[in-house]
Nucleic acid binder design. Sequence first.
DNA 1: CTGAAAGCGCTTACAG
DNA 2: CTGAAAGCGCTTACAG
Lengths: 347, 347
Amino acid sequence: MEMVPAKTTIREVARAAGVGIGTISRVLNSSSQVSRKTRAHVLDAIRRLGFRPNAQARRILKRRSEMVCFLLSNRDFLHPFHARILQGVESHASGLKQHVLFAALHYSPRTPPHKIDLPPVLQEHGLIDGVILAGTVYPNLLQRIESMQMPSVAFSNNVVGMDDGQQFDQVGFDDFKGMLHATRHLIGKGHRQIVFAGDISYPWLHRRFEGYRQGMRENKLKPVLIKGRSHLSFGDFGQGSVGRILSRRPRPTAVVAGNDEIAYGLWRSLCRQGVKVPDEISLVGFDDREEAVLMDPPLSTVRVHKEEIGETCMKMLLERLHHPQMAFSQRVLPTEFLIRGTVRQLD
Amino acid sequence: MEMVPAKTTIREVARAAGVGIGTISRVLNSSSQVSRKTRAHVLDAIRRLGFRPNAQARRILKRRSEMVCFLLSNRDFLHPFHARILQGVESHASGLKQHVLFAALHYSPRTPPHKIDLPPVLQEHGLIDGVILAGTVYPNLLQRIESMQMPSVAFSNNVVGMDDGQQFDQVGFDDFKGMLHATRHLIGKGHRQIVFAGDISYPWLHRRFEGYRQGMRENKLKPVLIKGRSHLSFGDFGQGSVGRILSRRPRPTAVVAGNDEIAYGLWRSLCRQGVKVPDEISLVGFDDREEAVLMDPPLSTVRVHKEEIGETCMKMLLERLHHPQMAFSQRVLPTEFLIRGTVRQLD
DNA sequence: CTGAAAGCGCTTACAG
DNA sequence: CTGAAAGCGCTTACAG
């Protein structure tokens, strides 16, 4: 059946079924106004001829492409974190017969909006119905997308430098609460000397730091920030700061790392110096990346439901498409604290 | 400019420029048969009206969608390895104004070809020009794709169970030679007692094992296979087999791991048992995954140029589209041995 | 319920 | 070089 050179057109099906082309179309679009009998004939003809309607021709009339773009900005590579978001987008999309185009973009926050060199997918008109913004999103990109009247939803955790006035649809998770829970967990286990390691010039690390701070304060504990040097990778940062952490007096019994990469770097350094985790020092991360499970013992960390983020982005984008006038919304998804092996009960 | 509700059509541009619609189309398609003067007028009108041609309408006449699908099969998640291939596909594609749809599929090798439940992207007719098959490709999937007359290129390293008769376009890297070089490297460093760790029921690990074997044989050394149990993850496999490796007499001075995941598992176990890498035992991996750099010292391994694989897949698919009758081809890309810290010079 | 017609926004021979 | 017309493969009022 599928061997038929698929050039069969709706007209040929109409002839074969002895009806007009409009009727074929109605059957295709499962319009209710076709008699059972006619429908059966048509369906049969379609099967016999191996007919499949031309996707492009349908789209032109539907005024909707049923395609969205997943745009990854300013990332050298599609990290598992974003890959999972993409998968969430795709799985939700494909269930609804929507398609997902993958595109990458590199741009500077200082480029004027209209000068940003968008990928071809976003340049063509009518190719996509909307875009999901992942990776780092600066105000200029958002402005550009808006000026094109292109519906969009942003993964909000990596949105940077947006002033409060700017409204847009966004989905993200709660950095603050995630870290608050992690900190409370440590305190619940009897820890008092807890430091935070991370470069808080990144907005998301800053929010996590605030969560940590809140946890410390509500327990009358003094928050301590081990700042990083921003030119270091997170992993190197972790390694570099071990010395500073261990030399503090009183010596910290636990470290809250801004993310798993930092935690991994810390762990590796600790190993090297013969400091045992969690026996001598407890460790907690954030993100639940691969590194977390590669550690020994595996890292207690804050899990982010990445697929769910993707799924929610897709959902929200679809809502936006159906209700263009709807007010902008922001969804914040909860995180989950994963107890694994790097936190020790004190006392 | 981009503020104009982008419903401008070619007819309005024609009116504004005082020419026929055919001329607009010719300018759009940079046909040479338009005078400089007319072209300038048209271009000006296009700019003034903020006109952008409707992508769908163009495609219907071009008989080409300029879209390809990157199909990831039987993977629970888009691992960095495949993510990099996807990026290679995308970057090459976008340079040529081609677009990339991402889709995932789960299927059994035993499902009859026509019963495989393809993702929506592959069900619509005319939506994509071709497909790049990544993830595990069994004969039934390939047959199905062929029966649809859908041009395709497969990433060949994960193709499984294909009999020699079946021809198809494929791109991959050289498992055999990659491991041969790695083995020779170890031998060059004075190692003689070298074992291979990996479950060779995976075809790609089998090929790597053969490369190792060749390296051993050409140096009159006896190859030793540390088999895995296939229900274990690669990482656990590595950990589980350390005991068996260390208890061999004479004790191996080096391990060739079937991939980096296994190498990482081995390393972690070795660490735990206090066996130093590379002082007491050398270690070599394959793939250059993230794990390789997370080890301490970083793993010497065989690098695979993943972006290049993606790029080559895209190139080959485009060739196929332009030359449907062309003979099938298979490209094997070279690998590169990365000397990092896990191999010690003996003597 | 159904056919014949008009139309979506383009491209491409066909004449000139 | 360029316009007017036919046509791509569909959908959708418009009549009946």
